[in-house]
Amino acid sequence: MDETGKELVLALYDYQEKSPREVTMKKGDILTLLNSTNKDWWKVEVNDRQGFVPAAYVKKL
């Protein structure tokens, strides 16, 4: 969790967005987890953008 109590995830792999609903991340990025109710796609925030990334590409910290 960060200082505001939000849950964080670590990008395990690079991911290039394939639609406007997704976000690009690089391996090693720390992202804010917004929603993990879907087992396949998690909603995150990175670089002031919100979108989805494959759940298998990130790990909760």
Rank of each mutant, 00 (worst) to 15 (best):
V53Q: 00
K60F: 08
V53E: 00
L31Y: 08
D14R: 03
G51M: 05
E45G: 08
E22R: 04
Y57P: 02
K27C: 08
P54W: 03
N35T: 07
D48S: 10
K60G: 06
V9S: 02
W42K: 01
M1E: 13
G5A: 14
G5L: 13
A55G: 04
M25K: 00
V46W: 08
L33N: 00
T32P: 15
Q16C: 11
Q50E: 10
P20N: 09
L34C: 06
L34A: 03
A55I: 03
K6S: 09
L33W: 01
E45R: 09
V53M: 01
E45S: 10
V9H: 03
S36D: 15
A11K: 01
L61Y: 08
E17Q: 12
E7K: 09
E7H: 10
E22V: 04
M25I: 15
E22Y: 05
E7L: 10
E22I: 04
V58M: 06
K26F: 10
P20S: 12
G51K: 02
Y57S: 12
Q16G: 07
L33A: 02
A55P: 06
Y57L: 15
D2P: 14
V23L: 14
L31P: 02
V58K: 00
A11G: 03
T4H: 13
K26A: 08
R21W: 15
K43A: 08
F52N: 04
L61P: 03
D2A: 12
Q50V: 15
L34H: 05
K27F: 05
K6Y: 14
I30A: 02
D40V: 13
K27H: 06
D14E: 05
Y13F: 11
K43S: 08
N47I: 11
D14P: 05
S19W: 05
P54I: 02
K26C: 11
Y13H: 11
V23C: 09
E45K: 09
Q50T: 11
N38G: 09
K59M: 14
K26D: 04
K18T: 12
L31G: 12
K27P: 03
L33D: 00
Y13V: 10
I30Q: 05
K6R: 14
L61K: 04
D48G: 15
I30K: 04
G51W: 03
D2I: 14
M25L: 07
F52P: 00
T32M: 11
V44N: 00
S19A: 08
A11D: 00
K43Y: 15
L8F: 14
K59V: 15
N35W: 06
L34Y: 03
E45P: 00
R49D: 04
S19P: 04
M1I: 12
K59C: 15
V58L: 15
N47C: 13
W41L: 03
K39P: 15
L34K: 05
V23A: 05
E45A: 11
D40C: 13
Q16M: 13
G5K: 14
T32S: 08
T24N: 06
Y57W: 06
Y13Q: 12
T24P: 05
D14Y: 04
D2T: 14
D14I: 02
A55S: 13
N38D: 15
D29F: 05
T24F: 04
T37Q: 12
K39Q: 11
N38I: 05
A56C: 15
S36T: 09
W42H: 03
A55F: 02
L34S: 02
L31N: 01
V23W: 04
F52C: 12
V44A: 01
K59F: 08
L10T: 07
R21H: 13
L10D: 01
I30W: 05
R49Q: 07
V9Q: 00
S36P: 05
P20A: 11
W42A: 04
T32C: 10
S36C: 12
E45N: 06
T37K: 10
K18F: 05
L31W: 02
N35H: 07
D14L: 02
Q16S: 11
G51E: 02
N35V: 08
V53S: 00
I30T: 06
D2F: 12
K43D: 03
T24W: 04
L12S: 03
D48Y: 08
L33F: 03
K60N: 07
Y13K: 13
L12T: 04
K59Q: 14
E17P: 14
Y13D: 07
D48L: 10
D29W: 12
A55K: 06
D2Y: 09
V46F: 15
N38W: 06
G51R: 02
Y15R: 02
D14A: 06
A11F: 01
L34E: 02
F52W: 15
Q50K: 11
L12Q: 04
L34M: 06
V9C: 14
Q50I: 13
N35Q: 10
E22L: 05
K18Y: 05
I30L: 08
I30P: 01
V53F: 01
R49N: 06
V46H: 15
V9G: 12
N47R: 13
Q50S: 11
D2N: 13
P20H: 09
N38E: 11
K26S: 08
L8W: 13
L61I: 14
V46T: 15
K27W: 03
A11Y: 01
Y57A: 13
R21V: 11
A56L: 09
M25D: 00
V9L: 11
K26N: 08
G28E: 02
K43P: 01
K18P: 04
G5I: 13
K6I: 10
D14T: 05
L31R: 01
G51A: 03
E45Y: 06
M1D: 13
V58N: 00
T32Y: 11
N35S: 11
T4F: 12
M1A: 13
M25G: 00
M25V: 08
A11I: 02
N38L: 08
Q50H: 09
V46D: 13
T4A: 13
K18Q: 14
T4M: 12
R49K: 11
P54S: 01
R21F: 13
V44G: 01
N35E: 15
T4V: 12
V53Y: 00
L10I: 15
E17N: 07
T32L: 15
A56F: 08
N47Y: 13
E17F: 05
P20Y: 08
I30F: 06
R21E: 14
D48F: 09
E7W: 11
N38V: 05
D2G: 14
K18V: 08
N35C: 11
Q16Y: 15
D40H: 14
L34I: 14
D29P: 00
G51S: 01
Y15N: 00
K39Y: 07
V58Q: 01
V53K: 00
E7N: 10
D14V: 02
E22P: 05
K60Q: 08
A11S: 05
K18S: 10
K18R: 13
T4C: 15
G51C: 03
L8S: 07
E3L: 11
G51N: 01
M25C: 06
L12A: 04
R49V: 07
Y13C: 15
K6L: 11
L61A: 05
Q50D: 06
K39C: 10
M25F: 09
Q16L: 12
D14Q: 03
L33H: 01
L10G: 02
W42L: 04
G5N: 13
L8H: 09
V58H: 00
L8R: 10
M25A: 02
V46Y: 13
E3I: 14
S19C: 10
E22H: 06
G28I: 01
F52K: 03
L10F: 08
L12P: 00
D29E: 11
L12G: 02
V53W: 00
Y15H: 04
L34F: 04
E22N: 04
K18C: 11
D48C: 12
G51T: 02
G51Y: 04
V58G: 01
W42R: 01
E17V: 05
W41D: 01
N47G: 15
L12H: 03
D48H: 12
K26R: 12
E3N: 14
Q50P: 05
V9F: 06
A11P: 01
V53T: 01
L8D: 04
N38P: 04
V46P: 00
A56W: 09
P54G: 01
R21K: 11
A55C: 06
V9K: 00
K43R: 10
Y57K: 08
V58P: 02
N38C: 10
N38R: 07
Q16T: 14
K59W: 08
I30C: 06
K27N: 05
V53R: 00
L31I: 08
Q16E: 14
R49Y: 05
D14M: 03
S19T: 12
K6A: 10
Y13P: 00
K26Y: 10
L33K: 01
K27D: 02
D29Q: 15
K6P: 14
R49L: 07
W41F: 06
V23I: 14
N47S: 10
T24G: 09
L10Q: 10
G28M: 03
S19Y: 06
V46G: 15
V46K: 15
